[in-house]
């Protein structure tokens, strides 16, 4: 493994391995990293995947707002989601930072996060940092709840969070986090210290399998070209998917 991935490439490669063949996977608008992840999966692990990239000229499947109803009908197997805060209860925030009545920053989560994260079968979150300001004891605003009563019917699959330091996993049954793997350059203890809540037992956490040379090569050639050809964040693909 000679080549070194930048942050966006790292997350794209790790998430590409989660895309399953023959399933329907999607990401929302302004989601460059998941777009690259799905296109990489198409040339690696999931050649028959159905992929939907909102915000792409040619790969948005002309869905637009109907993605919500596709998901509500139970037809969406995997959805990539962003958030700025996560808390110990499995809640995430994509609405506001600070006091909701006088926010420091407003974010786009009001649009669909409270629906997509309850209806898509599996959710993968991603965050281009791993810091105590992201992983907090309690989120400033609950855009999506980690746990809901059994009367609220929703898929019960665990969700994962991909960061620059590790992969976290939240199991809705017991309602707790675990550390699935830690990236090269980090120890489980370091990741725990960067996380504002307990990650449970961290005595036997495997190392993340970092991007292979072949995955990076495909990302920087075939995926990059395809993003440019299909009007899928071409500027991002040109500038980000390349050696440092």
């Amino acid at each position: 493994m000679g080549a070194k991935a930048n942050t966006d490439e790292l997350l794209a490669v790790l998430m590409s391995r989660e895309v399953r063949d023959w399933e329907t996977s999607a990401c929302g608008a302004v989601s460059m990293i998941p777009a690259a992840a799905m296109l990489l999966a198409e040339v690696t692990v999931a050649p028959n995947a159905e992929i939907i990239i909102l915000g792409s000229e040619k790969l948005d499947r002309n869905l637009g707002k109907d993605i919500h109803f596709l998901s509500q009908r139970g037809k969406l197997d995997l959805f990539f989601h962003s958030a700025v805060q996560f808390d110990a209860e499995g809640n995430f925030n994509l609405h506001v930072i600070g006091d909701p009545n006088a926010p420091e920053r407003r974010l786009p989560g009001g649009y669909g996060s409270g629906l997509m994260s309850y209806t898509a079968k599996r959710i993968l979150f991603f965050r281009t940092e791993h810091t105590p300001r992201t992983f907090v004891e309690k989120v400033d605003f609950i855009s999506g709840a980690g746990k809901t009563p059994p009367e609220i019917k929703r898929p019960q699959e665990p969700f994962k969070i991909f960061t620059t330091a590790a992969v976290l996993r939240f199991d809705r049954g017991p309602g707790c986090y675990s550390l699935e793997s830690v990236h090269e350059g980090y120890t489980a203890q370091q990741v725990q210290s960067l996380t504002g809540f307990s990650l449970g037992d961290i005595s036997n956490v495997p190392q993340t399998v970092m991007p292979t040379d072949e995955e990076l090569r495909l990302l920087r050639t075939e995926v990059r070209d395809r993003m440019i050809e299909t009007g899928t964040y071409p500027e991002w693909a040109r500038t980000v998917l390349q050696p440092a």
């Binding site: 609405h95 909701p100 309850y118 999506g144 709840a145």
Partner: peptide, 21 residues
């Protein structure tokens, strides 16, 4: 009916949505 939103603060801040059987 809407699938989703249960347990969120969106739901808490509005009186035009409730949870119903």
């Amino acid at each position: 009916p809407v699938r989703g939103l249960a347990g969120t603060d969106v739901f808490k801040r509005r009186d035009d949505m409730i949870i119903a059987p």
